[in-house]
Design a protein around this nucleic acid. Sequence first.
DNA 1: TTTAATGTTCTATACTTATCGAACATAAAT
DNA 2: ATTTATGTTCGATAAGTATAGAACATTAAA
Lengths: 109, 109
Amino acid sequence: MKQYQHPSPDQITLTGVLHALSDPVRLNYVQCLARELRECPCGAIPTPVAKSTMSHHLRVLREAGIVRVRTEGTQSLTSLRLEELEVKFPGVLQTVLKAANESPVIENS
Amino acid sequence: MKQYQHPSPDQITLTGVLHALSDPVRLNYVQCLARELRECPCGAIPTPVAKSTMSHHLRVLREAGIVRVRTEGTQSLTSLRLEELEVKFPGVLQTVLKAANESPVIENS
DNA sequence: TTTAATGTTCTATACTTATCGAACATAAAT
DNA sequence: ATTTATGTTCGATAAGTATAGAACATTAAA
């Protein structure tokens, strides 16, 4: 049973969040997570990269404070830290997600 | 008289904007630009890096579509592309700037 | 107890990038 | 015509990072 380290709100930085969201693969993943309102196993979200690469991306998202990861059985369930991010950086994640939904993220860069 | 290339709104991508804003030096520069509501020569904004490094950062901001650069005499005047970005990605730049003003950008990471 | 499912870690690689100093370019001031 | 001010470009470097495959760890299912 793997234990994951999550940054506390104090440790979350704006540049860290922006950097984590600036990768197309990661932003797309976060977009999918936002559509589902529940926790998701990685496998439930289609990704264009290898398993190990996705593991890396999830680590970046987790260490930036964007997602919460929890282990259950063989799967690791991921969810957005929406409320905490809203308190820390009001509107940022929401507007980014809205913008991402309007214009494609994966296709054109 | 140097001529600068600016991306049209169509060419501006969300990930490109986020990436450009994810560097502390650049985000701090954009923050300063937002405070001044006029065009600024680079020199008017204090930066912690060398001249040539700043030139690189400004290029990144320009190519991401965040700033407009114009030459006048020996100085190059920079301003935010606020309206265009607001149309393309509503709220994104504004909320990021607001968040940047609340928590320090340069000091801690 | 194997086997399958799910994900992590390690190693390697290619690419990007933040940084600087030196040299250069241009325009204004002397 | 120098000199000064402002910024760009080039070359180099060190650090970061996105990618994948192979090996491993853990839990569930057969």
